[in-house]
């Protein structure tokens, strides 16, 4: 496990710099240097007065398989929400803009519960792999390959 800093919570009190035994928390990028971070050390996590630092695992647990009934009921909602999104896509008024933003969140929630919670999930990886066989010539397949490399 390595430490990560949420820069929108960080109040630059620098307690993490004082306690870090390797200097991993002191960088010019605003982020903690994972290569110097000691596995599970958490001194900076506990020292931070703003709770801006947390520990991130390097390998994630296998997600429980969804029942096919739950999955298909979620897909019904998912399709319905993308249909509604298409109706407000032009975002010509404040109402349409608000609905567009909100419907995206509802659709994303269906995707998450369908099994695409994080990119490291097996379903996400399989989806990326299957997209490499997609025949759309404009699909940015280099990006997909780079992602598969980063996630492996």
């Amino acid at each position: 496990m390595y430490a990560v800093r949420n820069s929108s919570l960080c109040t630059k009190d620098c307690l993490c710099l004082f306690v870090c035994p390797t200097g991993a928390t002191d960088t010019e990028t605003g982020q903690i240097d994972a290569s110097k971070c000691l596995d599970g050390c958490r001194l900076c996590v506990d020292a931070c007065p703003s709770h801006a630092i947390s520990l991130m695992v390097t390998s994630f647990p296998e997600r429980k398989e969804k029942s096919s009934e739950v999955s298909s009921s979620l897909q019904e909602v998912f399709h319905s929400k993308t249909g509604q999104l298409a109706m407000v896509r032009q975002q010509q008024s404040l109402l349409e803009r608000a609905l567009y933003h909100s419907l995206q969140i509802l659709g994303e929630d269906c995707a998450r519960e369908e099994g695409f919670m994080i990119a490291q999930d097996r379903k996400s990886i399989e989806l990326l792999q299957s997209l490499l066989e997609c025949e759309d010539p404009d699909l940015p397949k280099d990006t997909i390959r780079e992602l598969l490399d980063l996630l492996s």
Partner: peptide, 12 residues
């Protein structure tokens, strides 16, 4: 649907 699958993964 794929657009939302990937925007959700980007957020996580």
């Amino acid at each position: 649907e794929l657009a939302l699958v990937f925007s959700n993964l980007a957020k996580s």
